[in-house]
């Protein structure tokens, strides 16, 4: 299980990094999206992988902490998902506007 997730993180990172080094703005956006999946998974994996242990309590006291997975990385990733959504939207609009202004979809605003 760990091996699969680690490999996934690796491959997503590779694809993402390769894309953000390309010259077209659209490639950059797709690259950032892939990279953000990788980063989210990475942060999430820091809480270790557990099956069937969601951090939703059954309401009884005292709480058996060991029965649940760590909620902190989840809270962090939840925030990260929101923020990466916001940055994707912002980049997209910058892309559109810069293409309108310069007529080019090159990341530098001009070809070459």
């Amino acid at each position: 299980m760990e091996l699969v997730i680690a490999a996934a993180i690796g491959i997503l990172t590779t694809s993402g990094v390769w894309l953000i080094l390309r010259s077209r703005t659209y490639q950059l956006i797709i690259g950032l999206a892939l990279l953000s999946y990788a980063v989210n998974l990475f942060i999430f994996s820091m809480g270790r992988l557990r099956v069937n242990a969601p951090p939703v309590l059954d309401g009884s006291a005292p709480v058996d902490v060991a029965a649940y997975t760590d909620p902190i990385p989840q809270a962090l990733v939840l925030t990260a998902i929101v923020i990466s959504f916001a940055t994707t939207a912002l980049f997209l609009v910058v892309l559109i506007v810069s293409r309108g202004l310069t007529g080019s979809d090159h990341v530098d605003g001009r070809e070459g």
Binding site: A7, G10, F42
Partner: peptide
């Protein structure tokens, strides 16, 4: 970058 991230994640997990 990918190999690094994968190794880091794997060993930490």
């Amino acid at each position: 970058a990918g190999v690094g991230a994968a190794m880091l994640a794997y060993f930490t997990m």
